[in-house]
Design a protein around this nucleic acid. Sequence first.
DNA 1: GTACCTTTGTGAACCAATGCACAAAGTCAC
DNA 2: GTGACTTTGTGCATTGGTTCACAAAGGTAC
Lengths: 236, 236
Amino acid sequence: MARLPLYLRALNGLAERGIATVSSEDLAVGAGVNSAKLRKDLSHLGSYGTRGVGYDVDYLIYQISRELGLTQDWAVAIVGVGNLGRALANYGGFVSRGFRVASLLDADAEVVGTGIAGLVVEHIDSLESVIRERAVSIVVIATPAAAAQEVCNRVTAAGITSILNFAPVVLTVPDGVDVRKVDLSIELQILAFHEQRKVTGGVDETAAAAADQWPGTVGMSERNQGASAPPRGGRT
Amino acid sequence: MARLPLYLRALNGLAERGIATVSSEDLAVGAGVNSAKLRKDLSHLGSYGTRGVGYDVDYLIYQISRELGLTQDWAVAIVGVGNLGRALANYGGFVSRGFRVASLLDADAEVVGTGIAGLVVEHIDSLESVIRERAVSIVVIATPAAAAQEVCNRVTAAGITSILNFAPVVLTVPDGVDVRKVDLSIELQILAFHEQRKVTGGVDETAAAAADQWPGTVGMSERNQGASAPPRGGRT
DNA sequence: GTACCTTTGTGAACCAATGCACAAAGTCAC
DNA sequence: GTGACTTTGTGCATTGGTTCACAAAGGTAC
């Protein structure tokens, strides 16, 4: 389940505060979910709770970590050392959860050779050999959009089946390859959507009025005139 | 709907390549969803397609942008100018979609006053005045976990109702406030989970064996002895 | 040992979202 | 103008996930 990492984080917070036992109710509010859902999720891993008492925090942390495969050490390669790549390389949340950044790679000669987060940036040419020799099993793509598919092709060809993609493109991959996409602007767009709803109770009036007067055309019937000459001026 | 930003990005890609019309089928594969789902989503916005032809790309971009509230200019403040904050400030995807970074704020005197992405980092003390004077409507929290709730309290008190949280904590907010959380390590954990499944067909055997021998205790019945003295050694 | 209390684990109802399949609507060729 | 073809928009069945509610299980007090 995709919620296990959430529980894990809440549990780690409890463990740090020295709490040894937690009820499903308390853990649920900590993770921001329904308590019945949490119990059902946990019951899928096996019965690790004690009725009348709750769950042993440390034991549950261990069980979830094991289920998520965090008890083993995952070698991760980050391709693309721009601002985002740098932020990821320094991100503490990776190391603390069983992920080891095995390599930073970039195509830019300016960046290759510089040191970031205790690693020396390597040239993208070594991608395949790095993956092979350091047993990399997950690749993070933090390149510009234009380079992402090319990188993706190379890493899948090299046998990688798990990719975390930060580039704003939909990657096409062979069957059996997992791609998870993170788009930092999508979340903002969703917030803006809700914010707009709060303010105006719907689409704002100025924009709605403008919608009826689509620039360059008069009505629906004429709209498709613009099919060969795009209606929005200045994109030719 | 949360999928509109996805469609929007696919559409922008098509527009850049000069494509004027697209069928639901083509757009669906571009966005990685089912075509029927896409049509149903779009029909909720109104009937913007032409049967037998498809959708006018530019017109649809405009309609979705309007629905998402991207036709107006959103002022965003980023709190916490670490690696992640810097990456976000430089992230092109924000500006291109109607979001304007109105301010970068940090508590660290070392960082305050430096220039990033054409802005001068301001001190966190000015948080409230910045929000008020620049009409900030969305706040991005990219601080360390420990500082996030405090920042959150201050911005909600200042009237902010939309927060994008990158800090690895669950924020508690008053009713009516929207919080969206992005955790860069959760996606990685989900990948690791699937990767593990691929390799072993389930939980790996070493860990499974170890699970039956929870360190420090013998069996289930004794486990709760550890409630006051945590079973996993060295966390006191 | 017994009665009571707390909390888990789960059966069952419920709800929303998904995908199929097809009719309606429009285009294009001739 | 007519007929064949394409593509949208949507009714409907199905699926998956969420929540409720409660019995079973264990702990605790006396």
